[in-house]
Amino acid sequence: MPVDQRRINGPEVSVPYHIYSDFDKKSDKEKHDFSKRSDKRTDNEMRKIFLKTGIVSQAKGSAYIEIGNTKVVCSVFDPRELSNKNGYCMQGEIYCEFKFAPFSCQKRKIHQQNAEEKQYSLILQRALEPAVCLHEFPNFQVDVYVMVLDNAGSSLAAAIMAASTALANAGVPMFGLVTASTIGIYGNHYLMDPTDTEEGICNTQPDNEDDFNHGIITLASLPQHNQISEVFLIGSIDTNTINQATEILTAANKDICPVLQQCLVKTIMKLHNEKK
């Protein structure tokens, strides 16, 4: 990958010091104490959501979302014409760029997108595409930029919701809103809206158990149409558990939808009052 010469990229190889801290030396049992979650939530409880539009004045539409400590900002820009490489395109396109801020995670991220961020960009794009009336702006492209300012878990779900709100805020024609949520699975535990440490735990399998369900599912859906717009599962989970988890997630997505709607109504009301 080409390195941007104009930026100072820091030392080539550096590691966060956390990996040498005492936490990793604790036995697995202590780390995986699921009788209570670190932020006193129950397994089925989501963190509180704060959502605001119009945060970036330069952009056509923008949104800022906070889920617990996860903070994501998203901006949507005016449609621009596609460069005519493949001839006239009957459908419009959405271009998504997902980026973790360099300081957002425990390990510092470089300015270029890494493989994970590229994958998240594609997932974001596919989560939004079913919701946007692509035929309304043929041969045009809408750019969606998402920046995670602070990653405290479930940042992909937060990004999807921020992007869908920002698209609506930008006035892009849509069939409905997209909501998303994440669930972490560890054995018999279904951890709704996991934090970053919980995500780490759900991603690793305990050493001496082979037949063990673990993993993370992110599900984006269109609650107004009862459709799934994107699923992203990683781990090792049996089919029944997946089915149960997706049911929980679709229900959660339905519950979140009014938050997005109210936020948009508030924006419109504000605009209306200003005009008066």
């Binding site: 599912i217 799934i228 699923v231 049996d238 997946i242």
Partner: peptide, 23 residues
């Protein structure tokens, strides 16, 4: 028999029932 990854591709959306059946 466990599933280690699921990703949806393409620009369309899927109904919940169909998704379960597909799995």
């Amino acid at each position: 028999g466990k599933i280690s990854s699921v990703v949806k591709l393409g620009y369309g959306s899927i109904q919940f029932n169909t998704f379960t059946k597909m799995l």
